[in-house]
Design a protein around this nucleic acid. Structure first.
Lengths: 297, 297
DNA sequence: ATGGTGTTTTTTAATCATTAAAGACATTTG
DNA sequence: CAAATGTCTTTAATGATTAAAAAACACCAT
């Protein structure tokens, strides 16, 4: 076969959402515009929708209710980088991926049902940060991370991120930063009220929060290192003991303090809250390294 | 076609060196071991050597003198990453590659006579640092670098590198660091006495010097950022005015001071020399930014 | 003019086929 | 039996190929 039908499937699901919400197909061109695809693709989508009895012509509204089974499964629709990232995240958290292990391009590609070249590119990217090293052929070794490296990285993060807070409060009211910050705030409250400090959603949210701080302040170096920090933190959380959940909750509370200070445009309070937060994180990590439960070296 | 014959050509040249130096082929296996290749490859090398009249059987010494024309040209033998790196270096220095330009994977691959996948991997790597961004398909855009970014990067470099000097003098006498340092020293003296501050060789040497400092001191973050700094400095040198050569010579003199202090295991003197050197570099750069001759923004 | 349609052409991204190179196996030689 | 050899099998890099998706084209209807 040739290239995958990822676009088609992704947009097919989007089309179902659109139709289920009462949307109508007015014209092929309009439909294509709505879904941000070429007419070629829009045309084949409509063809498929007709074949499945969801439409009766090239125009008009839904002909029957949409079932869950009409949708393509999520795994066939996500961006491959997203698939890869969350897969690796999972493996690390479940300790199925540790320093010294070997990973195989072909195996991962098969397992995740994505093209091998994407896996390769993903690993090449991470190898720039020293997390993986090409071993031979299509095999990659998970490299150990030294304490020094982690220490350096966290110091750096603290230094750069703290400096980036002040410019943030100066952003105009219309800047997209603010709504994004709000939505992250909402998510914090939501998580705290439901699953609490559950690792997986927390890690994701934590990453979103810090990414936002860096990207909004045009902190290019930290943007470059963001992916590295992301991975380090995952290795970190892996060592987490039983207090992990409590620690995550504590972190979210600290995030909220920073966020609220930002929303009130209180630069000083935001900065000191951030310093406190990053120090806590760093101390926790150092402590876990002093008394390691993993095989870091 | 299938995969390239880079190994074959590289090893063929090595074999010529070996034979020209009076080496003899005792056995296929031994020959393979000597060249660190499989017997399959050794066999075809010997076959080729016989065809060219350099050997008369599967054993024995050289049958005729080796001419320069017997060797494969250097460009067909180098590691592709080396080819790529020096090609990009050249383009940047000659101002044939500037922010806003577009580069095309296929075109570069054809031009340099290397596989397209290698070009792609190289660009993916650099895109991690924000120097290139995938534009559409196989086209990449050269991204502008902001002054802030450069400033941050150089600050960072200074901070990390200065901290890494002290551990170096503690390295045991047997550490490979010392001979490498010696050879870099020799190269400095050699350059100063011949071409002086000629851009191309200087840049290469400068990079080797700083890489050594970072790798020997296990400064992982800086190792990660080394490639980025390398590129920044190239963009930097591009803006260089007529004093560029003098500036490079000055830098080499400063390098020598650092090197000599290290060789004498004088940590304090090495550190202060390094601080002075990095400050000079940073000041020069800042000055060139204040009064830009390029189109940095 | 504007916005639509069917058809054709071009571009892009994934697989496929092919060959370089390595490795495994059985056998021979000294 | 230790080391070499020829033959055969396996692995992986790379250009060629192919299908998905986009874009261009020619035309039509308002």
């Amino acid at each position: 076969m040739a290239r995958s039908q990822r676009t088609f499937r992704l947009k097919y699901n989007e089309a179902l959402d659109f139709l289920a919400a009462g949307g109508r197909v007015e014209s092929i061109s309009g439909f294509a515009r709505k879904l941000a695809v070429s007419r070629t693709t829009a045309r084949s989508l409509i063809q498929q929708l007709r074949k499945r009895g969801l439409l009766d012509s090239d125009q008009g509204p839904l002909q029957r209710p949409v079932h869950q089974s009409d949708y393509y499964p999520r795994s066939q629709v996500l961006e491959t980088t997203e698939i890869l990232r969350s897969a690796f995240m999972n493996w690390i958290i479940r300790e199925q991926l540790r320093p010294g292990h070997y990973v195989d391009e072909a195996q991962i590609a098969t397992q995740l049902q994505i093209p091998m070249s994407n896996v390769r590119e993903f690993l090449i990217g991470l190898s720039k940060f020293g997390f993986f090293r090409k071993h031979r052929g299509r095999e990659w070794r998970v490299e150990p991370i030294t304490r020094d490296f982690i220490g350096q990285m966290l110091n750096l993060r603290r230094m750069l991120e703290v400096n980036s807070v002040a410019p943030l409060v100066g952003l105009p009211h219309s800047d997209p930063f603010w709504p994004t910050l709000q939505s992250i705030r909402t998510r914090h409250v939501e998580l705290l009220q439901t699953v609490g400090g559950e690792t997986l959603p927390f890690v994701e949210l934590d990453n979103r929060f810090h990414s936002l701080l860096n990207s909004a302040s045009e902190n290019r170096i930290m943007q470059v290192l963001q992916e590295a920090v992301f991975f380090i933190f995952h290795f970190h959380y892996r060592w987490g003991s039983s207090e992990e959940k409590a620690r995550n909750e504590q972190a979210m509370v600290e995030h909220l303090q920073i966020i609220d200070a930002l929303i009130e445009r209180d630069s000083d309070r935001a900065t000191s809250a951030l310093i406190a937060h990053l120090s806590t994180a760093q101390n926790t990590l150092v402590a876990s390294l002093e008394n390691p439960s993993g095989d870091i070296r």
